[in-house]
Design a protein around this nucleic acid. Sequence first.
RNA 1: GGGAGCAUAGCUCAGUUGGUUCAGAGCGUCUGCCUUACAAGCAGAGGGUCGGGGGUUCGACUCCCUCUGCUCCCACCA
Length: 882
Amino acid sequence: MELSAKYNPAETEDKWYAWWLENRFFHSEPDGREPYTVVIPPPNVTGILHMGHVLNNTLNDVLVRKARMDGKNACWVPGTDHASIATESKVVAKLKEQGISKDDITREEFLRHAWEWKEKHGGIILSQLRKLGASCDWDRTKFTMDPDLSKAVINTFVYFYNKGYIYRGVRMVNWDPVGLTAVSDEEVIHRDTTSKFYHLRYFISDGNGNPTEDFLVIATTRPETIMADAAICVNPADERYHWLRGKKVLIPLINKEIPVIEDSYVEMDFGTGCLKVTPAHDVNDYEIGLRHNLPVLDIIDDHGRLNEKARILVGEDRFEARRKIETMLADAGNLVKVEDYTSPVGYSERTNAVIEPRLSMQWFLKMDALAKDALESVESGRVRLIPDKYRNTYRHWMENVHDWCISRQLWWGQQIPAYYLPDGRYVVASTAEEALVLAQKLDPAVTAADLKQDEDVLDTWFSSWLWPISVFDPEMPGHPEHEPNRDLAYYYPTNDLVTGPDILFFWVARMIMAGNEFMKDVPFHNVYLTGIVRDKLGRKMSKTLGNSPDPLDLIAKYGADGVRLGMLLCTSAGNDILFDESQVEQGRNFCNKIWNAFRLVSSWDVDEGADRPEAAAAAVKWFRNRLDEALATMEDHYGKFRLSDALMGIYRLFWDDFCAWYLELVKPAYGAGIDRATYDATIGFFDSLLKMIHPFMPFITEELWHSLSPRGDRETIMLQRMPVAGSYDSGCISDFEMAKEAVVAVRAIRQQKNISPKEPLKLRIYGDFPAGVLPVVTRLANLGSAETVSGSAVTGTEIPFMVRTVKMSILAEGLVDTEKERVKLEADLRYQEEFLAIVRRKLSNEKFVNGAPEKVVAAERKKEADSISKIESIKASLAALK
RNA sequence: GGGAGCAUAGCUCAGUUGGUUCAGAGCGUCUGCCUUACAAGCAGAGGGUCGGGGGUUCGACUCCCUCUGCUCCCACCA
């Protein structure tokens, strides 16, 4: 069969993936083997594949495939996250397009739309992962809102409630006026934002609500909230304002009288030293309000608009109101000045809306005890963070954790299992039936119809923190006394988790908490934290910037193997990835290289009668050792999660060692057959190389592995054992390296002297050269002859060169430019003499000889000896030139 | 404001306890090649006083101090 000179991934990738699925090679069931378990960081159910997913899942797949080939029972559990706020906002937007407002429909109707949306878009990202080659056990696909997983979430809530960890209360929370829900502290992104600093004049009241001549000036960034001011606050130590004690001031525009209070919270040297206290709309002000028993007046509604309590600008958006009130204040004579100002402003991670600190009734989970154990899990090393610089960050977070606001004012998610009695009291239970029983203990008259379930749902992370447990046994969360089922007992704890550092606290830390709580064991042993995928210019890839390529386009253009390789080549743990399409091109080129190496080998015909050439024998011996060496290095890199190093090692092994040296050495002459021993060895090497490459490039390796030798119907490379490093002879490798150096030197001479590669050259060797690899030089440097001569008298018709300490020369009558050679040799001589002087200076330093380890000193002495012999050799060559 | 990290070739990065010519790799660049596996290729070459300065040491890319530049995390100065 004629093979194309270019590898065509489109012809192989879908075929093999379908075949893998058909044979259920990815499927895992508990058995006697050692398990290797990974759970996918569940992507948003309605999401589509982006470069971050490609990075993450490629790394995951490499680890899983490697473990599988190491003979472990590898299980990679896929699934999706319901992503309550992200999904809900998408559904709201889609309904809006259809002219439907969320306010006009019931919860049940909305959820019906949401589930439709989920059914329609929910599978997309998972099918995209298949394109990438991800070897997930699709039979185990889970969704965080599957009925059993949702039940686990509810049980968890009830468990922590009964344990006293969950409480309900009015607290200042981060309100997202676009998502219309509270979000947790972790979901707020602080960004420096330019705004204005308004200096406002508040007149002192005469006691009857009328302004006097006197006034004070406050500085604020939020003039639209002045109507909610409850006081003006100064530092008690601030003598400038002692005259204000006991006074009342009037809020501009609405002339509302508020007191002046003192609190050391106020910084005297910031702004004017006068702070307006607005308890409803600022976290600190709220705290001050509590201390001073100030009233709370909430003038901003859910959507971020001023409500009727503001008295003016009612119905205006907060930012619009800010613009308008500036003019109004100026007109009223209350605006002293406006300065430009930059300060951190909180934005919603999901909707990018400016967060409004707002007082509201929410559910919280106490974190201190959970965080303490989760910190210990990492500090003790039971969970290893890779790279470990994240341990510091992790510790800091765990030591400063706040209680977790777990309620969300959304519909898409697990509804909080709290049931209210008509009198306002409530009970918490897993089901309405159980709730009724509890409620009737409080009030025997209560009926099922009287009970009203809490409207809110739980934070998405309140379900995903159970993921490593609930995907195996959803009965377990909330029931620590439950006997783990067969799957959970076998697969838990999982081995490695690959995820981004941006969700270290959202997700990773909380999974550790849930694992400790319900399993009394950590959920995973290693957390490999990837970098963020950025573009060439270092900008984060994002939809809005439009700088993120569509992974599927890349796969179509370069093949999945090429994309995987391109991603992995620039990946070191924890560092950001500067992605560029040229890397994918490199990946594609590597596919092509492998493909063409195969084409070469497959074109060979074995000649059973042929003898093995010396060069081939040397090549086989060397490559056998080299392969073992490379395998040992590879294992070392895997052990340290240095996957791009492991890959690069294999890449060079294949391209340089195997293709450029080995194959060139064993390649039979055109039209000639190859001897059996060399052929078999080559097929064996190729087989090993394909296995080494397979975790990184699963498709092409499966394709070629099947073509390389006859295989059974259900034989797959993915279930072959990874070659194991044997012991190797480094002397053999070193000898071969010396032969390579000689070949390179001769080739360089050809280039310099413009000698065709086809012209056989005569080589002279002055000294000892490892005899076993001489045929290598003869073959690849295309030598007509190679003779070993004694002495060092190079004649004027030779071009001398050094390979390590061995002098060699090429006989090249008529091509030797004596003058040039002399200049070159003299330069070499000067270099060597300087080098020798440095070495001798070291060796004559007693402190060095006495202080340095023996090995180092011995090495220096060898340098000295080598240098002396080189100098002698160069001098002899120079003498011969004269 | 607090904390962490980074700075090595044109670009992206290795360099594991200070010590074999340890200053490396990949890509890119330059030169010569359509050589019967591969021009998505082959052969060869050039390129860095390891951010600046100081210190410890027989010896520093590696350890310490300092300066400069960048990044990230955390944080309630309105």
